[in-house]
């Protein structure tokens, strides 16, 4: 039993002027818009819900199989299937109105114009607190190479989106680059209010029984515990390189893996693939971080952010 006057540790954090009650969010694409998971957990207890990538018009996504399991992880090539921003606003954002949590809207596009169009269509969406821009999407103009792999391109797209956006802009970085810190600096130079990292790492699995690719798309993005040490390293490198807040993700399954990310420099964390294994993972992480803070007498989570230098 806790004493009445036993002060709860302060778990709140701030990202680009937006206050979150705790640093635990969901990772885009693993949580829909929260509706399905609301049958298992109380969304009010999350720092934020990050919604599945949405584009200016509906996208059909890739052929199946879209996923496969790998040791301590999975590959996915969903292909950013989404119902388009109009339906998303009317249905998904409306659903989220009933909850006392922050909403981060993840945006995707095939061209700068498509991103800008989608961001403009979200301008007066009151329920969207932050925008998270997925720049791992195939750039149609550049022959399908992801936007997020060239620093000049990253700065340009960030600046274009910043000009159109009414909400703070978080750029979600691809780890499929040689120097992640360089990309982070480019996003900061373009005016980003924060960074989100990491997206999935490109991989491939072969089905030896069928002697072909396990995924119809041939390659897919690796996620889950298998990528956690890479994500921690990249968050750490970027935290040293920029002065904007970082949302850390990649293989978070429990409080320990979340705290590692926070100590490496993340202001908040997102739980992705682990939601598939246990629908209540996010809440376990919130509780586990609180337990850690009580055990080690940490008054504010902010004292842990980037404490490892």
């Amino acid at each position: 039993m806790k004493m009445e006057d036993d002060a709860m540790p302060d778990m709140s954090v701030e990202i680009a002027g937006v206050r979150l009650k705790n640093p635990v969010m969901t990772a885009s694409g693993t949580f829909g818009s929260g509706q399905e998971f609301s049958e298992f957990i109380d969304l009010n207890r999350l720092g934020a819900v990050v919604t599945k990538g949405v584009a200016s018009v509906p996208w059909p996504g890739n052929p199946t199989p879209r996923i496969c399991e790998t040791p301590s992880g999975m590959l996915n090539a969903i292909g950013l299937q989404n119902p388009g921003v109009e339906t998303f606003r009317e249905r998904d954002l409306k659903f989220l109105e009933q909850f006392d949590t922050r909403v981060v809207v993840n945006v995707c596009g095939h061209s700068v114009a498509e991103y800008v169009d989608c961001v403009e269509k979200l301008a007066d969406a009151k329920r969207a607190d932050l925008l998270e821009i997925n720049i791992s999407c195939p750039n149609v103009k550049e022959g399908g190479i992801a936007f997020g792999t060239d620093p000049r391109g990253v700065e340009e797209i960030t600046a274009a989106i910043k000009k159109a956006a009414k909400q703070p802009v978080i750029m979600k970085l691809s780890p499929n680059v040689t120097d992640i810190a360089e990309i982070a600096r480019a996003a900061e130079a373009g005016g980003a209010d924060g960074l989100s990292m990491i997206n999935t790492i490109t991989g491939m699995k072969i089905d030896i029984r069928r002697r072909t690719y396990a995924l119809a798309n041939r390659t897919g993005g690796l996620s889950g515990p298998a990528i956690h040490p890479i994500a921690v390293r990249m968050v750490y490198q970027c935290a040293q390189a920029v002065n904007i807040p970082i949302i850390g993700m990649g293989g978070i399954t429990d409080a320990e893996s979340a705290l590692e990310m926070i100590m490496a420099g993340a202001t908040a964390v997102s739980v992705g693939t682990a939601n598939f294994h246990d629908q209540t993972t996010t809440l376990r992480v919130v509780e586990g971080i609180r337990d850690y803070m009580e055990q080690y007498h940490v008054e504010s989570i902010r004292d842990l952010i980037g404490c490892v230098r």
Binding site: G29, T30, F31, G32, E36, F37, E39, F40, K52, G61, T64, P65, R66, I67, C68, M74, N76, I78, Q81, T273, N275, F276, Q279
Partner: peptide, 15 residues
């Protein structure tokens, strides 16, 4: 179809 979430959130399993 191959499934990741089984509850309708991830869009892995479409036909």
């Amino acid at each position: 179809e191959k499934m990741a979430c089984g509850i309708g959130a991830c869009l892995s399993c479409v036909c």
